[in-house]
Design a protein around this nucleic acid. Structure first.
Length: 131
DNA sequence: ACCCTGACCCAGG
DNA sequence: ACCTGGGCCAGGG
């Protein structure tokens, strides 16, 4: 089954899961997003890089959008924990309300000032180094 | 079948 | 320091 929280992503040495053009990209993005610890955040680019597609950060945002539309509740995929490289909540407009993203983060202990994550550097969780 | 756009990011001028 | 363009994958008109 190799699904849930066990994406043997990274390169396709023996199991090409994130091969470009395979359509598995979205699924892999969701898998990584589910691994983001509560109270931490990561970026589109970090996830893309972890999947071996460093230039596909836009697709990560696209995948988050899809996940959110399918499950507006944060249960399935914690889309609110994915921000841009500057710590800005660039995807806030795609949540039920423009403030939902910030509210969900604050409810996990992540402080948000305006549209930016406070202490972004400390809160940052990089799948490339921590996974 | 072509063209455009997107919750991004980096390099170049 | 600001602006521009290319690249990535997928979906919509």
């Amino acid at each position: 089954m190799a699904s849930q929280a066990d994406p043997h992503l990274k390169e396709g040495a023996h199991g090409p899961t994130a091969r470009p053009g395979s359509g598995d990209f979205e699924r892999d993005v969701h898998a990584v997003a589910r691994l983001i610890p509560k109270g931490r955040v990561t970026s589109y680019g970090a996830i893309a890089r972890y999947l071996g597609a460093a230039r596909a950060s836009r697709m990560v945002g696209w995948a988050m959008n899809r996940a959110l539309e399918a499950h507006p509740d944060a249960a399935a995929v914690p889309a609110h924990r994915v921000v841009n490289r500057l710590g800005l909540l660039s995807g806030r407009m795609h949540f039920p309300t423009p403030t939902t993203m910030a509210e969900r983060l604050e409810s996990e202990g992540v402080k948000v000032d305006g549209d930016r994550v406070v202490d972004f550097t400390e809160r940052f969780w990089d799948p490339n180094t921590e996974l």
